[in-house]
């Protein structure tokens, strides 16, 4: 039924498809983004794979200091009353977030490596 060439063609297509999938997966992980939202509005975005330290807000009023280091994101300091954001474990996987409720700051990772965990009870 199938000619040899048909089968060869099928193989070529299969290999292209596999390469495409690998490429999509790889670029997805490299393209992980740290998205900072303040008061419900996206204020800044940074690549997860570049080390960086920044101030969110204003040092004279409300501030949080965010550090991106070796693919992990943590809040290293803040002047909010409870400092729960500073105590929060560092985050790395897609959809993980650190929230500073008093300052209405959300730091979320998007488009990165998928975590096994869907939700955490604390």
């Amino acid at each position: 039924m199938f000619k040899k060439k048909d089968i060869q063609l099928a193989f070529v297509i299969l290999i292209i498809a596999i390469f495409a999938l690998i490429l999509i997966t790889l670029t997805k992980e490299e393209g992980a983004t740290v998205v900072i939202t303040v008061n419900g509005k996206v204020s800044q975005t940074f690549p997860l794979n570049e080390n960086h330290t920044m101030i969110i807000g204003d040092e004279s009023t409300e501030y949080n200091i965010l550090e991106i280091k070796d693919g992990f994101v943590s809040m290293t300091d803040a002047n909010c009353p409870d400092k729960l954001c500073v105590k929060h474990n560092s985050i790395h996987f897609s959809h993980e977030s650190i929230v500073c409720l008093p300052h209405k700051v959300v730091v979320e990772i998007q488009g990165g490596e998928e975590s096994e965990v869907d939700m955490i009870s604390n």
């Binding site: 105590k87 474990n89 965990v117 869907d118 955490i120 009870s121």
Partner: peptide, 20 residues
């Protein structure tokens, strides 16, 4: 099934969850 983590009370730990 959904995979739900229990927060590690030790927040300085690199292990965010105690159990899944």
């Amino acid at each position: 099934p959904w995979s739900i983590g229990i927060q590690n009370p030790d927040q300085a730990s690199l292990e965010t969850t105690l159990h899944l």
